[in-house]
Simulated scan of single mutants.
Amino acid sequence: MACTSQSAEGYIRSARRHLVGELKNLTVILENLYQRGVLCDEEVSKIQAEKDDYDKTRKILDSVTNKGEKACYEFLKIIDMTRKRTLVRHPLHPGTKTFDLHHWISCFSFKEDTETNANYLQDKLDYHLDLSGVSVDPYPCCAVAYVVTQSEKKKICLNLEDVVISEQGMRQLFECFKNVQWSGPLPRLLWEIFLINEEQMDFVRLLSLDGNLHLLVDGEKKLFESAVEVMQRMHTKVNVCLYWDKETPACHSQCESLLKALPFISSLSFRGPVSWRQEKYHGTLEREQERLFMDLCLKAAIQYKEKNKHILKWLLLLFPVKTDIDNIFLDLFEHC
């Protein structure tokens, strides 16, 4: 469920079957509805006269929805403010999908919060949200997604370095990426979160954001192995963007995984850190590309002797190197 702009009445009706039987401390809800002028003395008395909490809840929901949008909105505000006392919270079990009313109420967009959130983004955060190093469950993800969607003037810079996000939390964030700066390390970080997550996440939707699978060249072996599995499950070849965060003088450790992925790669693109744009780093990205290319050729020559020429042709199509297959073996000798 994503943060929503659905009407209050529609929001309540869509969750009615979950609300019946799972609202608690009904006296708290009734007292607040009375204090806000939603229900009168007579209506409260009739609800309290019902034989059990199931019937009382049904009566509350009927009374509120019959009164229209304003009454429904007040009801949701009450539930939001009293959720710890009025909403049942079920224990979460891996592999099970339970409708969580706490999550449900956190995803309703209360209109008076919109201007506050937009001002907070501009005045306090300077359009920068830093979530680095934290474990983010679905509730904060929903809040982050909602706040980001309020930024209409400027795209948000989102830092997800070393963040752990569940599948459900990632689904919340997907809804706000149109308002996020799709630049810097963010695409790579999202793919890292996805690839190390043991849950089955929607890689097709992640690919749709910019059409690329993003990987750090010297990333963990598990990331490359997971990336190969993802590419093998795709019906079409995948565009891959490789990142360097530093110079890599040693032989690249993930050459074997990259070679396994070759049949599933449509194109390769390459990016380095922002510092490589400085004059003193001129040509560094090109040198790293060539070094990676030669490392892959060497690995192919050693490990795939019979298929070596076929693999070299693939590499020549994917890498922007100025050589041909006849000269590669001489280059390999010099590379070693």
Results as ranks from 00 to 15, higher is better:
Q6H: 06
A8W: 13
I12R: 03
S14P: 04
G21P: 08
E22V: 00
L23P: 00
K24L: 11
K24Q: 15
T27E: 15
R36G: 04
L39W: 05
V44A: 09
V44W: 07
S45I: 09
Q48V: 11
A49S: 13
D53T: 11
D53S: 10
D55K: 11
D62Y: 09
T65M: 13
A71K: 03
C72T: 10
L76M: 04
L76K: 08
I79M: 14
D80S: 13
R83G: 02
R85D: 13
T86P: 02
H90R: 09
H93N: 04
F99R: 13
H102V: 07
K111M: 06
E112P: 01
E112D: 15
Y120L: 14
Q122S: 15
H128M: 07
V134M: 15
V136M: 12
A143N: 08
A145W: 03
S151F: 11
S151D: 13
E152V: 07
K153I: 08
K154F: 10
L160A: 09
G169F: 02
M170W: 01
E175G: 11
N179A: 08
L189C: 08
E192G: 00
I196Q: 06
L207P: 06
L209I: 15
L215H: 13
L216Y: 13
L216I: 02
D218C: 04
E220M: 04
L223H: 12
F224M: 08
M231C: 15
R233Y: 10
H235R: 10
L242V: 06
L242M: 14
D245R: 11
P263W: 12
R271A: 13
P273Y: 14
R277L: 15
L285C: 05
L285Y: 13
E286H: 14
F293I: 05
A300S: 11
A301S: 15
Y304T: 02
H310I: 07
H310V: 10
K313N: 11
W314Y: 14
L317W: 07
F319Y: 14
K322C: 08
F329G: 01
